[in-house]
Design a protein around this nucleic acid. Structure first.
Lengths: 209, 209
DNA sequence: TGGGTATTGACTACTGCGGTCAATAGCGTT
DNA sequence: AACGCTATTGACCGCAGTAGTCAATACCCA
């Protein structure tokens, strides 16, 4: 019945998707209420079950839907052949910020889904996580040129440090976006990029030959 | 009635505390069930309400109880006068790992409590967070000697980098502890300290004069 | 045995859940 | 206007589980 759902006019379809995403993200699978979803999407109870069959059907549809958006926007735009670790993780950190900034609700939904441990959906979500997220993450760690680091430095440790710093920067931006509602409207990606470049330069000067 | 609870023999007291901590940590305030707590603590429903009056009373007792344990174990053992940032954040990172390793359930409970947004308890928890956690965190950022960094480096950025790396290291240990149950039993704090020292040396060599 | 405290668990009154399905609204075709 | 068909409704079902109460009982010491 999901193909029928996809033929709905866009406005209604998105109303339903957004209502469901919000409810699941806020309360987790078990505690999310289909009654709340239909109320805030302004549709009848019957219609939701007509399209998705069950609560679980709806949830798994959403996971798939959201992952596709992120895969299209994220992994497809990363250059996996870049061997300079600063450049590669620079790309990753900035792209991540950009995407979360663009789809904060989708990201929130994915985050809670992957740490949800309702027995009803745990297995399914774990499989998806493994086949999509973990695999791609591993790809990001291979084929890095470590000969550029200063000779007396442990390359593996330097790589870890660089990854932790890029993650730390990303988290600090995310934190500000989450904490301060004003920051969101005044947030300027290009100035974030400039600030990020400062850190990258510092790391290059500290660890590269 | 809580003073009476404190006079219980230790075994029973801890059985109740642990059952409640686990339930709240797993399901959040709203979704946690007093029925489940009494069942897994092996006491009667009446007894729980006899001691704590209400679900909220029990929850706030737990927050207070856990925070005290962490304050005693953490902030009291940090040397706030240490001006060398690597040493200060080195202390912090390792102490944090040690404490979480020692009381994983308490830490899990605090984490979920601070991000719980049930309206019933949100205000109370926010106040506690502000008066205990935020204040102390700010203390950790003042009185750092920045003259030790290489002259051409932006001291503020270097400090951020160092903090992100110590956090990244801490998180990586935590992740391993969480993911792999075997790792927990074979985990050796002193080898973690040695590994951590490696990172510290690398940072010192990269950023210090 | 009496008296006092610690502990029990059946009980209440209630809320909200996922899911169903007969009824109806809405629309294109004849 | 009348038919047929699909899209949509929402009252309803049976159930599970909730926080909290309180008369009854178990337990222990004098």
């Amino acid at each position: 019945m999901i193909d029928k759902f996809m033929n709905l006019d866009e406005e209604k379809r998105e109303r339903i998707i957004n209502a469901a995403l919000e409810e699941f993200a806020k309360k987790g699978y078990d505690n999310a209420s289909t009654n709340e979803i239909v109320k805030s999407a302004n549709i009848s109870k019957g219609l939701l079950f007509h399209y998705f069959g069950s609560k679980k059907g709806l949830f798994l549809f959403l996971v798939d839907y959201v992952i596709n958006i992120f895969v299209d926007g994220f992994y497809s735009r990363i250059n996996f052949d870049e061997t300079d670790i600063l450049k590669r993780w620079g790309q990753i950190a900035l792209l991540k910020i950009e995407l979360i900034q663009k789809h904060p609700d989708l990201y929130g939904f994915l985050l809670t889904s992957f740490s949800d441990d309702s027995k009803e959906i745990k297995k399914d979500v774990e499989n998806i996580d493994k086949s999509v997220v973990v695999d791609a993450y591993e790809k990001l760690l291979v084929n890095i040129d470590t000969s550029v680091f200063k000779n007396d430095m442990d390359a593996k440790k330097v790589m870890e440090i660089i990854i932790w710093v890029t993650q730390g920067f990303g988290n600090s931006i995310m934190e500000k976006l989450k904490m301060d509602p004003n920051f969101k409207s005044t947030f300027d990606m290009s100035s974030a990029v400039a600030e990020f470049d400062g850190y990258m330069k510092l790391l290059r000067c500290a660890f590269y030959k």
